[in-house]
Structure formats: C-alpha cells, structure tokens
C-alpha cells in the first residue's frame, strides 16, 4: 500500500464515521416521539428551580494542569522519533547511543524541574 492509499483509507473512514453519526441521529429522529414542554426543557438541578445560569463563574484550578500538560505533551512529540531510532544507534552511526540517551535525559530533567517547581509552589495540593 502506498502512503496515499493508507491515509486515503483513513480519510474515507473519517467521513464514514461522521455520516454514521448523522444516520443514527436521523434514524432516531424518525423513530422517537417529540412532545416538548417548557417544564421538560428546563435545566436539571435535582428538581428545584435552577439558580442563575449554568455558565456562571467558578473557581477552577485546572488551568495549572493544562499548562503542565502542554509542557509534557510537547516533550512526547520529541520522544516518539527518538524512541524509534535510539535502539539502532551504535559506534558506526553519526550520533553515538550515549549522546542520544544523555541528550534526551537532560531534556526530560529540565521538564521535571518544572514539575518539581509546580509541586513546591503547592499547586498539586488542595486545601
């Protein structure tokens, strides 16, 4: 299989997946009853009248995790190509295995320092 045949199959699968979801929704629309009333369409809040809008301001602590995630997720992108070649390196290749391993470990250590800093700052502890 060529490159284009492989990723062409993938592209067709994406389209078929979206169509499938549309077809399921349409089939359900043809088969289900629809008798909406204002009471049914209120926001569910355990049976009592809902207070304020659902999109109100809340204190979320998750943005720190989003930053930490970005840090390590970018690292993962660099790790994938490194992982494939690191086992094939030896004394005859342009880059020695020791160099490849040490370079990547230094990179990871720099990122871990960021995690340690976040820990020290107390963002991983809630009180």
């Amino acid at each position: 299989m060529t490159f284009f045949e492989q990723y062409g199959t993938f592209a067709i699968a994406v389209i078929v997946g979206c169509l499938l979801y549309a077809v399921i929704m349409l089939a359900s629309r043809l088969m289900r009853p629809s008798v909406p009333s204002p009471q049914k369409l209120t926001t569910y809040e355990c049976g009592v009248e809902s207070l304020g809008a659902g999109w109100s301001q809340t204190n979320i602590r998750y943005y720190v995790f989003a930053f930490l995630f970005l840090l390590f997720d970018v690292e993962a992108i660099f790790l994938f190509p490194w992982a494939v070649i690191v086992g094939d390196l030896d004394a005859t290749t342009a880059v020695s295995p020791t160099f490849a391993v040490v370079a990547m470990f230094l990179f990871i250590a720099t990122l871990l320092e960021g995690l340690a800093y976040a820990w020290k700052k107390g963002v991983l502890t809630w009180d």
Binding site: P38, L41, G54
Partner: peptide, 11 residues
C-alpha cells in the same frame, strides 16, 4: 435508547 424522546434544554 433510539426510541427515547430527545430533549435539548432550552438554555
């Protein structure tokens, strides 16, 4: 499930 009424809250 496919025969159940589908509710979209007005909000």
């Amino acid at each position: 499930f496919i025969q159940k009424e589908d509710l979209i809250p007005s909000a």
